[in-house]
Nucleic acid binder design. Sequence first.
DNA 1: CACAGAAAGATTGACAGACAATTATTTCGG
DNA 2: CCGAAATAATTGTCTGTCAATCTTTCTGTG
Lengths: 256, 256
Amino acid sequence: MELSDKFAEAKFLAMPPDSNLPGDEMLRAAPQPMRRQVEEGLRNAIASGRFAPGQHLTDRMLCEVFGASRSVVREAVRLLEAEGLIVLVPNRGQFVAYLSSAEAAHIYEVRGVLEALAAEGFAIRATDAERAELRQIYEHLADVGPETDRMALLAIKRDFYAVLLRGCRNPLVARMLDQMLNRNSQLRATSLSDPARLPHTIRELRWVVEAIEHRDPEGAWEASRLHVRRAAAVALRILRGREEREREDPGGTQLG
Amino acid sequence: MELSDKFAEAKFLAMPPDSNLPGDEMLRAAPQPMRRQVEEGLRNAIASGRFAPGQHLTDRMLCEVFGASRSVVREAVRLLEAEGLIVLVPNRGQFVAYLSSAEAAHIYEVRGVLEALAAEGFAIRATDAERAELRQIYEHLADVGPETDRMALLAIKRDFYAVLLRGCRNPLVARMLDQMLNRNSQLRATSLSDPARLPHTIRELRWVVEAIEHRDPEGAWEASRLHVRRAAAVALRILRGREEREREDPGGTQLG
DNA sequence: CACAGAAAGATTGACAGACAATTATTTCGG
DNA sequence: CCGAAATAATTGTCTGTCAATCTTTCTGTG
């Protein structure tokens, strides 16, 4: 079997999953350099679960998939390694990171304070237009029925965070929290958390939105922190249960 | 003038400034891969100010200085760019990041919550031995006279943070806070803050250490947060003053 | 047949050289 | 002295090479 055949079906991975940002890429006249495309494509493929945890990412394979040279691919891989999405085994290669419950706990801890910081900053520094925008997206989220498909839900949440990160006026918080959320997406991609928690999520986010509208930074901080803590509790319970099961029945749900 | 001559005097940059960790590199039998060496060397050179803000970092020059090939150098540069120590200008090259007061404010904001999180985690999860170690380093810091040279002071502070980051039992917090501290070193390297603040620093850190010894996570959180806030206030005042002066007298203190 | 050890194959880590595209600098004509 | 063309320098990317290391397969022996 030829390499081209072997990876042909995976080629679609090269294009990002959410190309519904009409105005954005129109604006930047200069096309993104190759390494950015590979970087984003790889990030998306991992965060969305199309590259499963544990999967071996060969240089050659990545070159085929993204149509780039090894130098470019390797630069992208190094970046994603720094973000924690990929683990490198010396002289063996790179693998999609598997998220243990311990690591997930660490991530939730950091995400908690960063998200709280973002919400606090938003409450202090966002414009009225941004406040209205956040409220609008929240209403959108609160209106969806329980049968709405997961992808649509995730899209709305992503919009919510995009507005929050923009309005907090701290690009550093935005970038780091974005990393955390990417790692979290990896969790959601392996069918985690959401099912019955949606109403709780909506209620908790309402507290955040309301505190922000009252220009109450402390309230926004606390509400935000609480939201992440609860999400963490649910996710960690599921993750630990899964690990428990896998210890007793190795290979029951194989990942990569 | 030949390239070799041109950069000969800069060659010493390749070796890290703090090679006083005797037991550490003895342990790892496998030598760090080339790219790590370049990465660390570059990080140290920037954080310590030997590569000044605004300086143009040519590929060729970096290859000469670190004795590595372009691929390796470029991978390292990309990583440091993600950490914010380097800025890339498309088709022009990479420059040592200049820290504006606005960016510094962002960094201090993030550093505040991360350091608080680390202190809180330490208060909860550190071993007795680690607590004692932290106390010991603190005493060391409190004992130094005001005439102690800056390098020694920075070394002690670095030890303090090393113990704190290890004891908080969250490698993610450790890594991110480490990044923040690197950026901060860049500030200190341009002769900032410290002079008269040492007694205040010592007092504030004592509150942190005492809260930790009383196994009081909330106290450790608050004390830590307070410390960073005060340090930020001082540093930002100086930075803004400097920017003010430079607006009126451009070139008064040139940096690269 | 089982199994230790050797050979073959695949993959990484690193290097050097090449090339077009872009940007900076210098030269030269007016 | 000013502006435009020519020149040089630098980046972004690709290709090919090579040794070191890990995995797998093969092989000979008890």
